[in-house]
Write a protein that binds this DNA or RNA. Sequence first.
DNA 1: CGAATGCTTGACGGTACTCAAAGATTGTGG
DNA 2: CCACAATCTTTGAGTACCGTCAAGCATTCG
Lengths: 256, 256
Amino acid sequence: MRFDDYPAIAQPPRCAHPCEECGLRGNPAFLQVPDDEVRTIESFRSGTRVVDAGTSIVDEERTAPQLFTLYSGWAFRFKTLSDGRRQILGFLLPGDFIGLQDEFADGHTHGVEAVTGVTLCTFERSRLWELFHTRPKLGYHITWLAAREEKMVDDNLVTAGRRNAAERVAMLLMHLYRRAERVGMVRDGWAEFPFNQQHIADALGLSLVHTNKTLRRLQHLGLYKLDNGWLRIMEPRALERLGDYFERPLQPTPLI
Amino acid sequence: MRFDDYPAIAQPPRCAHPCEECGLRGNPAFLQVPDDEVRTIESFRSGTRVVDAGTSIVDEERTAPQLFTLYSGWAFRFKTLSDGRRQILGFLLPGDFIGLQDEFADGHTHGVEAVTGVTLCTFERSRLWELFHTRPKLGYHITWLAAREEKMVDDNLVTAGRRNAAERVAMLLMHLYRRAERVGMVRDGWAEFPFNQQHIADALGLSLVHTNKTLRRLQHLGLYKLDNGWLRIMEPRALERLGDYFERPLQPTPLI
DNA sequence: CGAATGCTTGACGGTACTCAAAGATTGTGG
DNA sequence: CCACAATCTTTGAGTACCGTCAAGCATTCG
């Protein structure tokens, strides 16, 4: 059974449908948990939120009173310097947990913005400790998610700090493709790829112009194809080697 | 009361001294916790480890069976590409918790190396879930630490991706000075600074030569002084503005 | 049809990298 | 105690990668 044999998970949920019928949970990329744990998550969840493409989910300046699980769509975390330079810290896909860093922060952290239309499950930040207290297992899972996200930022830091432009692009394409594949967003070898070149430039620490030239070059070499918001990897091995980026098999991810 | 009124915490501990007498816990930078929680940590702790300057604490290829709290000294986390390029992901000071990311990983994560001589408190990884289970509060604290560390990597990513060389150096000097100050490693305005220029270059994503030239320039402008492993910030405001990096007051940090 | 957004390309310049070699400092062994 | 090695810092020269500026083109939307 392959991940993309699973039904698309990109549709918005029926309004306030229960976690027992979650469209994500059936996906083998996610950890299967006992029913009573799902019910605890359900009782912790405070609602659903829909956000339009290109709009803000979490403001960069203020800590949101909610935590979120991304249910459908693509988003990204970012920081901007005071003169406007923007760095994308990482991309968010279905199943990703949003807002944990702010929990323990001094305020100023990062913003989150929707790339496509996005639906989110919301949780009240004020009840986080209650969750750890009553369900240590879920606390453990949240730590799992925090550690996994830090690992991704680690990788992005290596990219921005030590890879050249072509290596950065190769690494990003493989990374996003693999993650999309994992949550069932790949059809017939084509992954949803809703980013513009400014997103890619901001994620890689490159200028827009140089990102464009590098993308063109790799595309011209036949390493990948990009068509109308869909990505196809033509030469995964070549891109892996170029980016010096080899994904290991991953354990199922907890889903809050 | 200022942090540097506190006694130096840099001495190695008496062998296997109990957590109740921990030389770090008295520092107001750390969260004060009830005695029974300290005793739980004590029972979770499996020992002490001493590591020489410049040697490996955690191998980049293998997951260590222990978790650590850095008790004294300086260390750093890093990743290397297959051709040897190295990126330092972040620096570790007393109180920092080491090894959590590997817990939930696929193997290949990051290495940890001692800059100075280092002493560590060790914990058995296999008992981590037990800790969450029996003491949810400590699980919550561990999540706190994970989130805080991710925030620091986020900052480093912005640095590597979007700041120029002078801005990077300014940001790093201020960051390290502030963190050292917080844990009482500053005396009379001088902070312990055991790094060589290769460390700085690898942390900032710059070459050694360019790092040297940038350091010289900022030093020549009188923004800081570096003398025999000790750092003094002469113009904190100028460095903050240059690096576009302004620290907010921090909450006390949990200490495991 | 005009405006807005995003992609593409060329020209040019500068920041940062590489190569190379000379000081400076520290440690070590004869 | 000095000589020598090893490590780290500093500086110069030349280059290349990548950023900035500018403008043209394509597509979408109102």
